[in-house]
Amino acid sequence: MGGDNFNTSTLQHSNTFSPEALALVKRIIARYPEGKQKSALLPVLHLAQAEFGGWLSTETMDYVASLLGIKPIEVYEVATFYTMFNLKPVGKCVLEVCRTGPCMLRGGDDIIRYLEKKLNIRDGETSADGMFTLKTVECLASCGTAPVMQVGDHYIENLSCENLDGILDRLRADHERKTS
């Protein structure tokens, strides 16, 4: 992981959790024994990523460190290890497409190539309109309904180059409805 992952972004976001999120953090910490609040790091990082625009900036990670009473480096080393955490800004909708063997056997490669072409981006990049980020991931434990991708809280299964256009349109419409 390069140092540029830790550059401050120009994207502004509020740097503190809402009162509801803070209450949730408290409940998460309570799952672990006294003095073991570092265990709450992964769940709190997931919460932070969800609350702060889909990625973790240095400020966000420092904030999480302060909430858990641990050193910022302890957060950085964890955030860089786990692939679910995005260390750069992402599009409004992240398409996490499985690239592993069982999906490939049923056309996973074609799905990735189709998306790259259609959105005019490569793996890891965001479309010019800021809508979609393409991120290939390893086996999602959904090989029986391959090929598959994760979008937000859900999997979209049995993908094909024929049904992808409709899926992208639906995701775009969903997003517009939510923000309007």
Binding site: R31, L42, F81, M84
Partner: peptide, 10 residues
């Protein structure tokens, strides 16, 4: 019983 999420690492 508590549920704990991983972070995407085989």
């Amino acid at each position: 019983i508590h549920v704990h999420p991983g972070g995407g690492a085989y």
